[in-house]
Computed example of a mutant assay.
Amino acid sequence: MLVFIKKKSINIFRENKMAGHSKWSNTKHRKAAQDYKKNQKSMKLIRNITSASKKYGNNPNINFCLRAAIIKATNNNISKNSIKKAIQRGSLNFEKKKKIQQIKYAGCNKEGIIILISYISKNILDIQSKIHKIFKKYNFFFIHYLKIKYLFQECIIFLFQKTKKNEEILINLAIENNAYDIDTNSFKKIKIIINTFDAKNIKKEFKKFSLKILKTDTKVIAFKKHQIISLTIEKFKKFLKELKKIPEIQNISHNAFTKI
């Protein structure tokens, strides 16, 4: 009987020991999982701050993405020191990658007049805000460049000295090579506007006839022109003048049917 009791007591002791061990392990794993989730969330928020400052700079008054990331981080109890460090990391990369870029900005109004602007700048956000103000003034709104890309084509402009001999040759060459436009109105010069695809062929023919090109230039031209209805021509001229005042803007092309 004594042996039986001893065995029973040992079994009870072992059962209690095992039950206590499993309870502690469950709480330990649960806590570890909760801590991992918290760390992941905080790391994601810090990563958003660094990426925003890397792309658009460390000023939250101009950089709205950075401002939103900082507000999110503060709401999730992330310290000011860690936010500062994240901004510094991003801004260092931003200064390294700060190079001159050529960007295309497109806009449209309710009548269907589309304007395409190409500009070169280091500070993208500053110029975009200037363009946005002018757009708002003349009831234009922003459109993504890729959506209206098919409506425009890149052309090359060839400029020649006007003489009696070369005028007829140039007109014939332009017609044969499907030129977009031929301008012979000026007294001293002839202008040929042609597609970039056909430009190589016409250049070879210029060499055959020993025609000297004075100047070459590139221009983006709309396939179809759109008539101005409510917006007057004078108002549209003012709109273009205001855009041309921005020194970083290189080219402005539109589909408006006007002699501008």
Rank of each mutant, 00 (worst) to 15 (best):
G112H: 08
F152A: 06
T163V: 05
I120H: 13
I124L: 07
S210M: 05
S79H: 05
K54S: 07
S9C: 08
Y180S: 04
K110M: 06
G20F: 12
I143V: 15
S129E: 12
F160I: 01
I124S: 02
I115V: 15
K23D: 10
K96P: 02
L92F: 07
F239V: 00
F152V: 06
F142M: 05
N178T: 03
K80Y: 12
R47T: 11
K8H: 11
D126R: 14
A32S: 10
L2E: 15
L116K: 03
K99R: 15
I171K: 05
K72R: 08
A199P: 00
F187N: 12
L214V: 07
K96V: 11
L151V: 02
H132N: 11
K259C: 10
I157N: 04
P60W: 01
Q250M: 11
N123M: 06
K238E: 14
K136F: 05
N26E: 13
L170P: 00
D126C: 05
K203V: 00
L243W: 02
C65P: 01
F152M: 06
D183L: 10
Y180E: 09
F160M: 03
S9E: 13
N139K: 15
L243M: 04
N76L: 10
K122H: 10
I260C: 09
Y145W: 12
Q227M: 13
N139C: 07
K80C: 06
F64S: 09
A106W: 01
T216E: 15
N185E: 14
I228H: 03
L240D: 03
K7Q: 11
I78M: 05
L2Y: 14
K85A: 13
E15N: 13
G112A: 08
K188H: 13
L146G: 09
I249Y: 03
I175T: 08
F141Q: 08
F64L: 15
D35E: 14
H29A: 14
I78V: 07
S91N: 12
K225S: 08
K28M: 11
D183A: 07
